[in-house]
Design a protein around this nucleic acid. Structure first.
Lengths: 331, 331
DNA sequence: CTGTTAGCGCATTCAC
DNA sequence: GTGAATGCGCTAACAG
């Protein structure tokens, strides 16, 4: 491995000057600067980032934690997170998070990441606490269901998004609906559903609508089974907190012989590529992935930079994509 | 930050002993070992991995490079790569690779990863060369289209997999088929198609079959447009090198009014969740993701360990999942 | 068994 | 403008 020493010798300067060229830039005389640059070129020198990290106490790495990157929604966001991170000179370390990984994760991240992005993922309080103590800031994409420990987040304004949908459903005459979510109260999908329930219970215009909650655990298979278990649907529309559950629901309806949307309207919450191709195609909220990813990275970088006070959580407005699973569009 | 020094002081031993407890294990007297462990516990000590890396010249990080993690196929493999890496005590850094990122990537990985996994991705020769010189081993998931520089890979035995499919098509009376792939000869999807073409041109039992190649660039949208451009299909079956193109094909057929499978049979090559839910559901080769991910990580770890001679590339046998897009199943 | 010590490659203070 | 020297936190001889 060629180090700073080799470059210095080859350029006939001291090691410090090489560092100056690499960092402080302007201090060095133009002539020597060029000599150093040429030496780096000729030796094919690349600064060792691990050594730099040790010295600067900045790793230049951001950890992304998610429960299941197999979900196209999370994968799509990861894509944009990486892009945004690169823009800021950071790189991404990716981690599947499950509670049983907590200890390994603590060890693996020690001294290795400057900040953490929770991607549709919440963390137990003691883990949050650990990162707090280590001064590793966190940003969550998806509003955490509980906020014992303050946490900066970015999410869709679900209340607004679902409000639009309920209004459409009301226009179409639906009065009994189902909500499918993830029963674990720590799961961030619960924040989506909480918004829906809040609306249904407090907004005057929806007071007449009856609703029930189904457990889909955020996954295709579980949603499928949840529907298959029902003898009769006592609802005419179902709003799913994520798209995989909506797709599982459609699949179950087909196997049950329930016609969508005639007997049951189905609605998703992310608009992954897949929902446009199911039979029938599924109407869904369009989760603004790029915007969410960019905002999350920006906020995290700010927090890393120490701007604690002025980094606020944000809600994003989302569009709604109408498709046949909703039935006739009354807009 | 609590360091090894703090622990040593708190436990009343030297810094070396703390290291011994952490690494060499057995050398230390049980009593002091426990004292040290308790000190670590009480101080909530975590070894700084960056510092360790600098000393040991091992980062404990594996880089994963892929062009587009938005594809559920790649995302699904990433999931298992992370799992396997964790098993071996490594963690994953994720990078979107495009040629214009080459320089940034070289810089970002310097001293930061012990090995690299190419996920459905090939690299220009000079970049491969760079990693070679730096002694960073690579393993590719997907056989590279060209092998100028030797590269360990793991992939499906496409010749065997597509052989099964062509036999089925033949039984069903298809004699004109289309292959959809990615025209860039560097793209790893080309290796899949090369196998198909090789079979069609050299296997006696398929000599009578006519084929043509369509350009889908590996993406849904491009596949869709490629089909939409056709006035008439001069083929009765289409084999797509990846599933997103198969889904794009189905979507285009719907918009063209071509019935699948009656007028056109469509086949994919990965069996992502999505292909079971399209209209009609798409038959596909089942890419053994877990196995491929595990093998890739194992090989990479071996290469990192210096076992150059005995790390061979491997081909995996894949099953075929029949679905309505293929028409009547004659097995 | 345990302590002392010398770096790993880099950034940076302080002289010159 | 440039160089010498220090230390980031850790591992691993080596000495005791």
């Amino acid at each position: 491995m060629v180090t700073r020493n080799d470059v210095a010798r080859h350029a006939g300067v001291s090691v410090a000057v090489v560092s100056y060229v690499l960092n402080n830039k302007s201090i060095v005389k133009e002539e020597t600067r060029l000599r150093v640059l040429r030496a780096m070129e000729e030796l094919n020198y690349q600064p060792n980032l691990t050594a730099r990290s040790l010295k600067t106490k900045r790793s230049g790495q951001l950890g992304v934690l998610t429960n299941f990157i197999g979900n196209p929604f999370e994968a799509g966001i990861l894509l944009h997170l990486e892009e945004a991170a690169r823009q800021y000179g950071y790189m991404i370390t990716y981690h599947t998070y499950r509670d049983e990984h907590a200890e390994v994760l603590k060890a693996q991240l020690a001294g290795r990441v400057d900040g953490i992005i929770l991607l549709g993922q919440s963390l137990p309080d003691d883990l949050l606490d650990t990162f707090n103590k280590r001064n590793i800031p966190l940003v969550s994409i998806m509003k955490p269901a509980h906020l014992e420990i303050p946490l900066t987040y970015v999410d869709v304004d679900w209340q607004a998004a679902y409000g639009k949908i309920f209004r459409l459903l009301k226009q179409q005459g639906h009065s009994e609906i189902a909500l499918m979510s993830h029963g674990n109260s720590l799961n961030p999908l619960q924040a989506r559903m909480a918004s829906a329930i809040h609306l249904l219970e407090t907004d005057e215009s929806f007071r007449h609508m009856k609703y029930q909650v189904l457990e889909g655990r955020g996954r295709y298979e579980n949603a499928y089974h949840a529907i298959m278990q029902l003898s009769e649907p006592h609802f005419t529309a179902i709003l799913c907190a994520n798209d995989l559950m909506a797709i599982g629901t459609i699949a179950a309806c087909r196997d049950k012989g329930w016609r969508v949307p005639n007997e049951l309207a189905v609605i998703g919450s992310e608009n992954i590529l897949m929902v446009g191709e199911t039979n029938p195609p599924i109407a869904a909220v369009e989760y603004p992935r790029i915007q969410a990813a960019n905002m999350a990275v920006e906020k995290l970088i700010q927090l890393i930079g120490g701007h604690h006070g002025d980094v606020e959580s944000d809600l994003i407005q989302a569009d709604f994509i109408s498709r046949p699973s909703l039935g006739r569009d009354q807009e």
